[in-house]
Amino acid sequence: MTNSAADRIRDHIIPVATIVVAIIAIWYVGAIAMNAPFQRDLDRRGNTTSTTMEFVAKTLSQPKPILPAPHQVAQNLFDNTVMRSVTSNRSLVYHSWVTLSSTLAGFAFGTVLGILIAIGIVHVTALERSLMPWIIASQMVPVLAIAPMVIVVLSAVNITGLLPKALISTYLSFFPVAVGMVKGLRSPELIQLDLMRTYNAGTLATLLKLRLPASVPFLFASMKVAVAASLVGAIVGELPTGAVAGLGSKLLAGSYYSQTIDIWAALVAGSVLAALLVAAVGIASKLVARAMGAQTGGRAA
């Protein structure tokens, strides 16, 4: 076990840590470079002269920097998560939860819709010809163009809150699931389909006992893409609504008031959320694979 732990550190932790350190270093250099002109301007007007070290320190501690330093973002994240009650509307946990709830709702709708579309396409040839071009076209339209219209149209019929945002997530997430599941439902080999035919198995039995189980790996692969797309959809859905809560509204408010540190903190919160969601799908995928008898160790015979 110690051997595998050492392998794990060498194979996973060191490469990732190296990249993180490199990114942070570049980020600091960038922050100094980008904030320096404003700081120089400020110093000139205030008639202050400072040593290089003092100057660098000041570029990294501006209240509204062009590019906030990592530690400023980290400080903001810490203040707005750990140090605040989760019900406070300044808490990033609260805003993340608002975004997460519509992400999950949209992801669930999108996955179900994608599976249903794929089942239809695999069984009805006419559907493949008629539906597929529309499905592909739907993904050509920028979500930033669609999102405000969905929100506005739905609010005109008094549907507001979670549902319109979830629908935008659905709009983005059904596509990878549909495409992946069409491939997955068609993945059984001819011999396996012939076998069902020799049993005189109907379409439903073939779907339930062969096509669906065979498509599970394809489903999880496309769900990983879909859950990340759902999050993007939910955040974009919060932008045009004047939403009072959610990571999207946090980003929008931050840009209105030039609260760059808030923006970056919300961005980091968003990417942490995305990573957690993708990881959760990955874990679910492994658990399901194990329950379905996936090869785990050496051969027994």
């Binding site: 080999e189 011999i191 396996q192 076998l195 006992k209 062969l210 065979a214 599970v216 379905m292 008898g293």
Partner: peptide, 8 residues
């Protein structure tokens, strides 16, 4: 020709 057992 092949066993065609369902792996799951």
């Amino acid at each position: 020709q092949a066993p065609a057992l369902y792996p799951w």
